[in-house]
Each structure stands twice: as structure tokens, then as C-alpha cells.
Simulated assay, not measured.
Amino acid sequence: MPGTIVEPTERVRPAPTVPACDPVQREPLTREILELKRRLNAVILAHNYQVPEIQDLADFVGDSLGLSQQAARTRADVIVFCGVRFMAETAKILNPDKLVILPDMDAGCSLEESCPADQLAALQRTNPNFYTIAYINCSAAVKALSDVICTSGNAEKIVRAAPADRDLLFVPDENLGQWVMERTGRPMTLWRGNCYAHVEFRRESLLRLKARHPRARVVVHPESLREVRDLADVICSTEQMIHWCKASPDREFIIVTESGILHRLRKECPDKVFHCAPAFDVNRMPSDACRCSECKYMKLNTLEKLRDCMRRLYPRIELPRDLIERARKPIERMLEITARN
């Protein structure tokens, strides 16, 4: 299915390095965090890509859609968001009167950075008939310019629900957008952006791993390249990966997404075997080297930083009220469409 690709004027800067976690401090840190949570009447939300020790003490672990739904319904006074900045912004947009904090404000996203709001606005002005569907991996400013938000878990449903008489503009993930076009048959203009952690997966490396594990089913995230998606037994979001692997009668799986999800998969499916797909970084190692993909932004969050942000109630997400109002409408539209049968 053809689609127009729009190039941003600047490329994304490299991800920062990740400090190592100190396992010796884990137990006392966990106790202190749980006590702080009780005193603050806080809820801890963690993405599937967070480090295991954060996942283990979170109130809810899930993907972007699940985390958005949890944020929308929470009664906690403080939302502690263990993920990346755009996710914490989403929680603030849905809870403007609550305090939203995150362990590290530098936890960004290559997708978010690939789509500056001013460049999106300039493109929108070239076609008044654009209906903008923004993947949730974007800034609050980009959300405010959008008609509806989507996640990898509901992107197909959101696109199918889009007005038939509008020209669809999908930002910022070209790989997810391409996959949705294949699924729906709806042509879209795609923004040239991607998740650096997912485009490290390559067909040749995955084929070699499949040869070593011929009985393993291949589960692929739609942010991956088409050459990788073509090898999948199933393509789905991280939360859908959990459900699919639990329900599958198969016992062995190759998981093609950020390796943080393996912790939850192994906890919830202890009788099954999970292999991380090899990631290829052209600047560091040959394509046949097996290195699990890690999002360095996600891994900026540590137990120490989680404890510190709860002690200080900082870093906190602050957004202008008018921006919150404009950005909330497309998020609420997404939640409404997702709730339909």
C-alpha cells in the first residue's frame, strides 16, 4: 500500500548511556519506596520496558494504552510514572490537578524527538483536509495538534474509525504506520520517524536465531522494520504479547521488542521459554552478534532515582493549562474509540 513519507528537518540525537543498577541496595530501597507510596497516597505505574526491580514493586505494569487507562481512572494523589517523559505527560494531561513525577526527566524518546510540533504544524498547513493520527510516543505539543491519539495496541482500530473523507496523516512512527496501512488498506501520509531500539532488529539475524530454535514462535512489535515483521507469527503491542504468549499452546518464543518485557513474560509464563531477538548496532558490533535490544531512555529509571523523586516530589511534570486542554481531547477520543466493541 503506497504512502507518502515526510522527512523531518533534523535527525535524532543518540540515546544517553545507562548507569548500572546496584543489586545490594535493592531490598532497603524497595521498603523505603513502598513506605513513601503509602504516605503520599501514590500509585506507581511502570512500562513493560522498565528494569525488573521497578516492575516488581509497581502497582500496574503495562503498555502505553494500559498505562493511559490506569492514569485516567486513578484516585491516587500522586502518580509516579516509571517510563519515559511523554508517558508522564499523558498522565498529567489526563490528571491536571494531580502531581505527576518521574524518576528521570532525561528519559526521552527517539520517536518524540523525530517530530517537532512546529514542523508538524507547517505540514498540516499544506493540506487542510489532513486528519492527524498521532502515535502516543510524541510530545504534548504534538498531541495538541492531533485529531486522535493511538497506541501500538489500538492503532488499527483508530485508523479504521477515521473519517473516510479525510486525508490521513500518521505521525511519528513510519513503521507502525506502514503496518497499519497494510492491515487496513487506508492510504496515509507517514512521518519519517522510528524507534531506534526497534529498527536495530534485522531479518538476517532473526533468521539465524530461528534456525537455532526452529520450534519457537516469533512475536514482533509493529515498530519493527517490514523485513522483520514479515518473519512474524504474530505482530502486536507489548501487552498483547503477554496475552498471546500466555494463551498460546506453544512453549518457546522469540520476542522481537525491547528486552525489558522478558521479565514479565517469564514471571507470568514460568513454564515457557523466551529468547530475545538479536539487535544490530552498526556502530558497535557485527550483525550476527546476539545483544538484546534495550531502550536506554527507559533504562535511565532506577530504584535510586525512583526513591529520590518520591522523597523530593521532583522531577515533576508541569504543562500549561491551555496545552493540557488541547492535548486531552485527542487522548479522550482514543479512549472512547478503544472502549467500543
Rank of each mutant, 00 (worst) to 15 (best):
T4Y: 12
V6M: 10
E7Q: 14
T9C: 12
R13M: 12
R13S: 14
P19S: 11
P23A: 04
P28V: 09
P28F: 09
I33V: 10
R39W: 04
A42N: 03
A42V: 07
A46S: 14
H47M: 04
Y49P: 03
P52N: 05
Q55W: 01
D59R: 09
S64N: 02
L67S: 01
Q70Y: 07
A71P: 00
A72P: 01
A72N: 05
R75A: 11
A76M: 08
C82H: 04
V84W: 03
V84K: 09
V84Y: 05
F86H: 02
E89K: 06
N95C: 09
P103R: 07
D106K: 15
D106P: 06
A107H: 09
G108T: 09
C109F: 10
E112F: 03
A117N: 11
D118Q: 15
D118S: 15
L120D: 08
A122T: 14
R125D: 14
N129K: 14
Y131M: 07
T132Y: 04
N137Y: 05
C138R: 02
A140M: 05
S146D: 07
S146W: 00
D147L: 02
V148L: 04
I149T: 00
C150L: 03
G153R: 02
A155Y: 00
R160A: 05
D167Y: 10
P172K: 03
Q178D: 15
Q178G: 10
V180N: 01
M188C: 06
V199Q: 13
R202E: 14
R203I: 07
E204Y: 11
S205L: 08
L207E: 15
L207N: 13
R208I: 07
R215N: 15
R215C: 12
A216H: 13
P222Q: 11
P222F: 11
E223F: 09
L225K: 15
R229H: 04
T238Q: 11
Q240R: 14
M241C: 12
M241V: 07
K246E: 15
K246H: 11
A247Y: 03
I254E: 02
E258W: 10
E258S: 08
E258P: 07
H263E: 07
R266M: 10
E268K: 08
C269P: 06
V273H: 10
F274H: 04
D288C: 10
C292L: 05
S293T: 07
E304Y: 12
K305T: 09
K305F: 07
D308K: 13
C309P: 05
M310D: 03
M310Y: 07
Y314R: 14
P320Q: 05
R326I: 01
R328K: 13
M334R: 00
E336N: 04
I337A: 01
I337S: 00
T338I: 00
N341T: 08
